[in-house]
Design a protein around this nucleic acid. Structure first.
Lengths: 106, 106
DNA sequence: CTGATAGTTTCTTAAGTATCGAAGTGTGAG
DNA sequence: CTCACACTTCGATACTTAAGAAACTATCAG
């Protein structure tokens, strides 16, 4: 119903990553995911951890996380007092699908 | 002088790709590049060709192309009456560099 | 229940964006 | 020189965004 156009979906993700602070949040999450995987744990982490030195107010972070979630890049779920964030594998797949074009070009 | 932070540069590129029409323009350029490569020609094409069915006014396209160029994704050069656009290989490299994180996660 | 912690909602403000119409610039053809 | 073509610049308009302050909600410890 919304807009199933794949290009629009992709643009939506890029928009979510177009803000430096949001991009950093997402990259922190990716990094945490890798670390957790290395340790054999599940790849997710809660909000405060994502901040990693960013100087942002709580409302702003909340807003950014929502944007990432709306774009489909991450999933969130409450766990006690904390909000656990997880990278969405499907979104990663879509992003990767954009790359062949990049790799083929050159 | 400006802001050499690589994350900021990346965010800048994502911003340039965050508008559906601009993303389509860029993808068209990538596609043209591949075709031209296949034919042994240089991988670039001029503006009108980029439109590929998009219904945008000339000023809007001009603006979008400028955005892509400012973000470092493409390079432009005048050739007679036309503006020739070329994908910037360095930008592609930077985008690709973002992917290892994507691939490693999962 | 009380308090503390973690995150959310609402509202506001300043700044940025997308698009187009109208007018302007550069180039080549005749 | 004149004209048409391809693109650019300059508004103007309508819309979106980033950020935080203040107030709110949810969860847990004691």
């Amino acid at each position: 119903m919304a807009k199933p156009d794949p290009v629009d979906r992709l643009a939506r993700m890029f928009k979510a990553l177009s803000n430096p602070n949001r991009l950093r949040l997402f990259m922190n999450l990716l990094e945490e995911s890798r670390l957790d995987l290395a340790k054999g744990r599940t790849h997710d982490c809660f909000l405060a951890k994502l901040l990693g030195g960013l100087e942002l107010g709580a409302p702003t972070v909340s807003h950014h996380v929502k944007e990432l979630a709306d774009a489909g890049l991450i999933q969130t779920q409450r766990e006690g007092k904390q909000l656990v964030c997880t990278v969405d594998p499907e979104a990663l797949a879509e992003l990767r699908a954009f790359l062949p074009a990049l790799v083929a070009a050159r």
